[in-house]
Design a protein around this nucleic acid. Structure first.
Length: 840
RNA sequence: GGGCGCGUAGCUCAGUGGGAGAGCGCUCGCUUCACACGCGAGAGGUCGCAGGUUCGAAACCCGCCGCGCCCACCA
């Protein structure tokens, strides 16, 4: 490593790996379980898919969580960030199946056992890559223990929960209509379904009445499902059909007799006001069918093809083929009255993208209503806080309208359902039953069933472990809002039911990072930005800063410029530190005493630092990470570097600089400390060069704000000096004064007793006692500065500038006077504001 | 059909009642002893539109327009 003198730039590529290694070796990522959950701070990572690679969402969430973890670690909390991965049933199975296909085989061909083995092997190979990437980001997880939702202990927890909830009657098996995904050949839950606009044809089909007296016309977009019709429904109040209720219609092509029933669900104004009822293939019809005791016929099989029940003519066809065939036959019979195009929302599988085939099937369900109530109360009573507030309503609305959850999946990769069958017997238990002839249910549980146990199963539940006692309930759960229902709400429900505790006290729904083009980042669109590339380009600190800074609203476009801004901040911190450290006299080290100001600018920066400490802490605790990041930037650039360090340079370069060097060192130390949760690498690096610090910054105590050091007087004095410097610089630039020229001037303003020398140096002028007529007068707070004639000054330009200034001032005075003459303003506005106007 | 968010400088975004800000880009100037991945100075905004509340609105309220997202079983 080269010396600080030679390193004029912060080089993340060189430093970050080295620093991360020190963190890892320090053992600070891991803390022993001890004490109570109240005294600790713990986060469980939202488990990425085993197959996953780091994307921008992970990088943002990692930055958020690490910022929190580092902050609380510095606060002295016993800090645990538990990490692990999710077996991700469908996603993983799909990937491995794809691999098998490329090898010319399939899961059916090699069989279940070999397939599952293959997935495990695949997981060995690719799993956990994402945590190497997390390390690039600087994430201070407990890497010593990585959990997996299919670990032995975890699997045991899953099975015990199944048995427990089954015994409580919350889990049951039933023939119900489910969202069948022909793509993954499995049932999926309501949450895995997305609606897409589709234009279909609406067919008006005539069903003859059994009485022979005419026919009843129904409208349908799916004529092929008529083969499973078991009734026709009309609205009870629909006068057109009142006399037909209770009559019978004949199903064309099939000849089945259909009862004509009355049900308020039917909308009289849609189509003909008569609705064919197909309980086996339509969710609404299913409910109506259950209400009226109708038969549930299934004519489309799980392979998406018509089955034997569809009749010989149609069996084996795909649903689409069957539609064409049915329509053709109906036309032949003259049973289609008319058709019209019809655009509507149609459910598709979120995973496979295929159109959902609703069908009645024997599946396992979880009854959710009873579980939802306590999860609602937890939020209403403030035991669980949802951030931002707007997401709270979403959470509550969903839970208020919760429906049964289909938890069985027709997959091989996952937790196989712990139920065995023998003839009519059913056995439910965590271990296989005694005796011969039992076969286990082939289905596995929905991935979200096991991830719903994540905060406590990762800590050893259901055993009473030290981890559980020390770290559960956890504190914060940070996630993207698209899995608020899928995952978060279920963790809350299951956590309360199984452990008696809300599994975390705060839920953060962080922003969704969109691609620069405003669309979702996606592989297929090719508009994704790789966080690792960003880290390579701008460093982890820059990437973290950028992501946090851009994450204030619910959606945000990715902006590489914000990341570059973060890199600038890192570079600035590094170089500011060089200035202080390279001027540090031998023997001075950080002694733990608060910095002692010996000049007005010292008191000023100390005051600003106290505010920055408090603001940063407040922002992090309120989960307003953009405020934390941008606030640090403002402090470091706008106050520490642009002004404080510029003002004290001569003192730092003086021979007897002990006092100011010691002071600046203290300010620097606190600055890197409060910046550490946001930009951990560069701050750790700076820390390592501060004499008197043997330990890592990561493990240092957060510098608590001390409001007694806030000094409004010093703040006002320096603010005045800054304004004067800026006024003079602007004036100089306006008249084109030579940058290096030192202009003689007379200070004719109040309030510069302790800052006049700084103003002169920073604005490049020289105070003169000469009584000469000024060449120009520059207004500054508290008076003006008279610039005297000198050979470097262009008097014509100065005069023009002065003229402009006077016009502006006249306007200002007029405006202030107008305001002050307004009785309403003087009477009602706060005294401070009125006084400010008078001062003008 | 309901809900949520957004609309501020050319771009990406901060800013929740007292004279509009940042980063990037642009213009001009500067090898000033931490940093040229830098420093200084600028140009550039009827704060989506229209009402209202207020002494005072980018901000608070109402309506509209535009964009995005979520939820919803209407053939």
């Amino acid at each position: 490593m080269s010396t600080l003198e030679d390193r004029t730039r912060w080089e993340p590529a060189e430093a970050e790996a080295r620093i991360f290694e020190r963190w890892l070796e320090s053992g600070l990522f891991h803390v022993e379980p001890d004490g109570t959950a109240e005294a600790s701070f713990s986060i469980v990572i939202p488990p990425p898919n085993v197959t996953g690679a780091l994307h921008m969402g992970h990088a943002l969430n990692g930055s958020v969580q690490d910022c929190l973890i580092r902050y609380h670690r510095m606060l002295g909390k016993r800090t645990r960030w538990t990490l692990g991965t999710d077996h991700a049933g469908i996603a993983t199975q799909t990937q491995v199946e794809k691999l098998l296909r490329s090898e010319g085989t399939s899961r059916e061909e090699i069989g279940r056992e070999a397939f599952v083995e293959r997935v495990w092997k695949w997981r060995e190979e690719y799993g956990g890559i994402i945590f190497k990437q997390f390390q690039r980001l600087g994430a201070s997880c407990d890497y010593e223990q990585e959990r997996f939702t299919l670990d032995e202990g975890y699997a045991r927890a899953v099975l015990e929960v199944f048995v427990d909830l089954y015994d409580k009657g919350l889990i049951y098996r039933d023939n119900r209509i489910v969202n069948w995904d022909p793509g993954s050949r499995s049932a999926i839950s309501d949450l895995e379904v997305e609606e897409r606009e589709v234009t279909d044809t609406l067919f008006y089909v005539e069903y003859p009445l059994a009485s022979g007296g005419g026919s009843l016309t129904v409208a349908t977009v799916r004529p092929e499902t008529m083969l499973a019709d078991t009734a026709i429904a009309v609205h009870p109040g629909d006068a057109r059909y009142t006399r037909l209720v209770g009559e019978t219609a004949i199903l064309p092509l099939v000849g089945r007799r259909l009862r004509i029933i009355a049900d308020p669900y039917v909308r009289p104004e849609f189509g003909t006001g008569a609705l064919k009822i197909t309980p086996g293939h339509d969710p609404n019809d299913f409910e109506i069918g259950r209400a009226h005791g109708l038969e549930e016929l299934v004519v489309i099989g799980e392979d998406g093809r018509m089955n034997a029940a569809a009749g010989e003519r149609f069996a084996g066809m795909t649903a689409l083929e069957a539609r064409a065939a049915v329509v053709a036959e109906l036309r032949e019979q003259g049973a289609i009255a008319r058709t019209e195009p019809y655009t509507h929302a149609v459910p598709h599988s979120h995973r496979s993208g295929e159109r959902i085939e609703p069908l009645v099937s024997l599946q396992w369900f979880m009854e959710m209503k009873r579980l939802a109530r306590p999860a609602i109360d937890a939020v209403l009573e403030g035991r669980l806080r949802v951030h931002p507030e707007s997401q709270r309503k979403r959470y509550l609305d969903w839970l208020e309208n919760i429906r049964p959850w289909c938890i069985s999946r027709q997959l091989w990769w996952g937790h196989q359902i712990p139920v065995w069958y023998r003839g009519v017997e059913t056995y439910v238990g965590t271990a296989p039953p005694e005796g011969d002839g039992w076969t286990q249910d082939p289905d596995v549980l929905d991935t979200w069933f096991s991830s719903g146990l994540w905060p406590f199963a990762t800590l050893g539940w259901p055993d009473d472990t030290a981890d559980l006692r020390a770290f559960y309930p956890t504190d914060v759960l940070s996630t993207a809002r698209d899995i608020l229902f899928l995952w978060v709400a279920r963790m809350v429900m299951l956590g309360i039911e199984l452990t008696g505790a809300v599994p975390f006290s705060d839920v953060i729904n962080h922003s969704t990072i969109l691609a620069p083009d405003g669309r979702r980042m996606s592989k297929s669109l090719g508009n994704g930005v790789d966080p690792i590339e960003m880290i390579d380009l701008h460093g982890a600190d820059g990437t973290r800063f950028g992501l946090l800074a851009m994450s204030s609203t619910q959606d945000v476009r990715f902006s590489a410029e914000k990341v570059a801004q973060g890199r600038q901040l890192a570079n600035k911190l590094f170089n500011a530190s060089r200035l202080v450290l390279l001027r540090l006299p031998a023997g001075i080290e950080l002694d733990g005493e608060p910095p002692q100001p010996t000049a007005v600018e010292d008191a000023w920066i100390l005051s600003r630092l106290e505010r920055a400490k408090a603001d940063t802490a407040r922002a992090i605790e309120a989960f307003e990470f953009h405020r934390a990041a941008l606030g640090l930037y403002d402090f470091v650039y706008g106050e520490l570097c642009d002004w404080y360090l510029e003002i004290v340079k001569p003192r730092l370069y003086a021979d007897d600089n002990d006092a100011v060097a010691r002071f600046a060192l203290g300010v620097l130390a606190d600055t890197v400390a409060i910046a550490h949760p946001v930009v951990p690498f560069v701050t750790e690096e700076v820390w390592s060069h501060i004499p008197g610090t043997d330990e890592l910054l990561m493990g240092r105590a957060w510098p608590a704000a001390d409001e007694s050091r806030i000094d409004p007087g010093a703040e006002a004095e320096i603010a005045r000096a800054i304004a004067a410097v800026q006024a003079l610089r602007g004036w100089r630039d306006g008249i084109g004064a030579a940058p290096a020229a030192v202009l003689p001037a007379r200070l004719e303003a109040e309030g510069y007793e302790r800052t006049a020398a700084y103003v002169a140096r920073l604005a490049r002028c020289e105070w003169s006692a000469e009584a000469a007529e000024p060449a120009a007068t520059v207004p500054v707070p508290g008076g003006s500065i008279a610039v005297l004639a000198s050979d470097t000054l262009d008097l014509g330009a100065a005069a023009r500038k002065l003229e402009q200034r006077r016009d502006w001032l006249d306007a200002e005075i007029a405006r202030a006077e107008q305001r002050l003459s307004n009785a309403g303003f003087v009477g009602k506005a706060p005294a401070k504001v009125v006084q400010a106007e008078r001062d003008k």
